[in-house]
Amino acid sequence: MQISCDINGKAYTRHIEPDLVLIDFLRDLGFLSLKQGCDTTNCGLCTVWVDGTPRLSCAMLAAGIQGRQITTIEGVEKEAAAFGQFLAAQGADQCGFCSPGFIMNVLAMERELTDPSDDQIKHYLAGNLCRCTGYAGQMRAITLYLGARKGELSCE
């Protein structure tokens, strides 16, 4: 079957198998930031935005994105780097394998929630697993980043 969609602002038309999963479709096209950490929609590593909303690309068929807008971290590199600096300043990037999915969700959260409390942040990101950091360093980075976006703090 044929699908057309927008990925990071560019139009794509491709022939695909009907059972092709979105993550495999995107990796095949060279969006290699996408990672898969489980087979059961538990880890959040494969998070992308579909029409601006975070979705698990391992749990969506490529056929389902006909006419829709996909954003991967490659499409928001500047924003990712801006938050990524805060993560790196804490040493909380660690192995980095969960970073793309995690950062896509942090950036989505920033758009969706105004002044989120720690609890709101934890709930929003509950689906993003990380085995290296123990989450505390990620939390420090998020707090400092959101503060800096309001003009309060720097990443140091």
Binding site: L32, S33, L34, F83, Q85, A88, F97, S99, P100, I103
Partner: peptide
């Protein structure tokens, strides 16, 4: 001193640096 990791920016911007990439 608490310098950031030398590979940090590649990791946080999703660069293709792992085996399968």
């Amino acid at each position: 001193t608490a310098v950031p990791k030398v590979d940090a920016m590649a990791l946080v911007t999703g660069k293709p640096v792992y085996t399968d990439d």
